[in-house]
Write a protein that binds this DNA or RNA. Structure first.
Lengths: 261, 261
DNA sequence: CGCGAACTTGAGGCGTGTCAACCCCTGTGG
DNA sequence: CCACAGGGGTTGACACGCCTCAAGTTCGCG
């Protein structure tokens, strides 16, 4: 139940220098002046840790002592209810923060699982708090990341609460493409790191529905998908579907009411 | 598009003292030592503002300059998509923070609407940042609140993604009862501040479904509801439904797969 | 070369959305 | 005081989108 058993495992580097990391423009130190950046070198990141594919970085109930910045690979986060049901709530890629679910209660409330062999930068929360006094910009950036997560989750709630399955899948693919592009990868040729089941769980759908919609999109010429190799060929078409502008047979409004006044 | 037009409206008090507010044990200053508490008096809260029922405290696109702590009344927050569809993403009661959706982009991304005549404490974000240097505990409490919101939203995603309508309604009622109780109100006799439509939107359901489930719960003796006057008579029964333990005819697992390994 | 996991595809059922009719309550103006 | 309008809520009939179940295929890997 405690993370201490993990904390010394797979540590591959100690006291890492952010200024030497190619990810720093999109990671926690984004926007720092170079003086501040070198100032946090060897101080913000306590260590790097390896997490093998399928392994948990932390799990619900673990004591919260540090945040993690994804360096290589990617992760999924999962909440689970008492009765065993669970749901994927997010997909984290390199440069993104993991573990903020533990800030409130000082225990992690969810699981974080590596979708491929991955490495993370370990950031001890207490140490970061002290660094803030010396580098206020670091704190502002941290708040920006927390705020971004909050907004992202609200959009996910909109998706889960009032979108059709096709719109959800289109939204997922567009978000994925955009985030890949931001990291210098192709926005059209993507290797999916999640199974159909995991994608379905993230979108509140079953794996069969995801599979069917992939096939449908393929026959409509929007994309090509073969197992986990995905190629988006009509991004505008996906965006049209995402925005609910697809030609539905007598387009029903689908809970378009509410939420306004 | 700018909040400046609001900022001087309905201001009913300037420079409020948190130590004199009965809400401080559950609000932002929770857990502060009394020396710290008096130290932030007249400095954390710049003003109190009135918001009439149905009015927006802020709307998507407004410039983000301050957070708001609900003092009296309650609010709903709503995201909306380009196509006009929208969704209620949360219900905020007294002592809770509003506006953190603007931290990342310095613009509010959602709307906040008063569900009844309400008053909020205006907390200028820049000024709070300065206060943190003098009162670190205030900052920690702020992080705790952000972290709590993040966890709360993940649970809402679990609800929206993998629960039956009856389970969602039960979860909503239990959450509501618990939060009312925390504020010194009855956990069983509750005046609903949201319409069926708003509740439905929050839960990813239609108003008709909410109404039907209220009726069903009533005939099952779990509660009594007449318009917005609600009385919970069997909390344990609601909890059983929420946990998916209700006697479904040949209980289907409903996407119970996924999210685990 | 064969096994299991992941994926695809089809047929059918079910949960909940949609549409519509009706009731109740409240406020308004004659 | 009543007539009326309008918004919120209830209830029923029906439709439909997605889940469930099942069979078959492909892929990855020993």
């Amino acid at each position: 139940m405690d993370t201490s058993v993990h904390s010394h495992l797979h540590v591959v580097a100690n006291r890492v220098a952010c200024s030497a990391c190619s990810l720093h423009p999109i990671c926690l130190p984004a926007g720092l002046r170079s003086a501040d950046l070198t100032h946090i070198d060897h101080r913000l990141v306590a260590a790097r840790r390896k997490v093998a594919r399928g392994e948990k970085l932390f799990r619900a109930g673990d004591r919260f002592v540090s945040l993690y910045a994804v360096w290589t690979g990617c992760f999924k986060t999962c909440v689970s209810a008492r009765d065993g049901r669970g749901q994927v709530t997010g997909l984290q890629m390199c440069g993104e923060l993991l573990g903020n679910d533990g800030i409130a209660s000082r225990r992690h409330e969810i699981d974080a699982v590596a979708l491929e062999d991955a490495q993370v930068c370990v950031i001890h929360y207490d140490e970061m708090e002290e660094l803030w006094r010396e580098v206020p910009a670091l704190q502002q950036q941290f708040h920006r990341l927390l705020g971004r997560d909050i907004v992202r989750q609200q959009l996910q709630m909109l998706l889960l609460g009032s979108m059709y399955a096709e719109e959800r899948v289109a939204a997922f693919l567009l978000d994925l493409a955009q985030r890949m592009h931001l990291r210098g990868y192709s926005a059209s040729t993507i290797l999916l790191r999640m199974s159909r089941e995991e994608i379905g769980s993230l979108l509140g759908l079953t794996l069969e529905t995801v599979s069917r919609i992939f096939s449908k999109f393929q026959t409509e010429g929007l994309l090509t998908v073969r197992n986990r190799q995905l190629a988006i060929s009509d991004e505008a078409g996906l965006r049209r579907i995402h925005d609910g502008l697809a030609e539905r047979v007598s387009a029903p409004p689908r809970v378009a009411r509410a939420a306004s006044a």
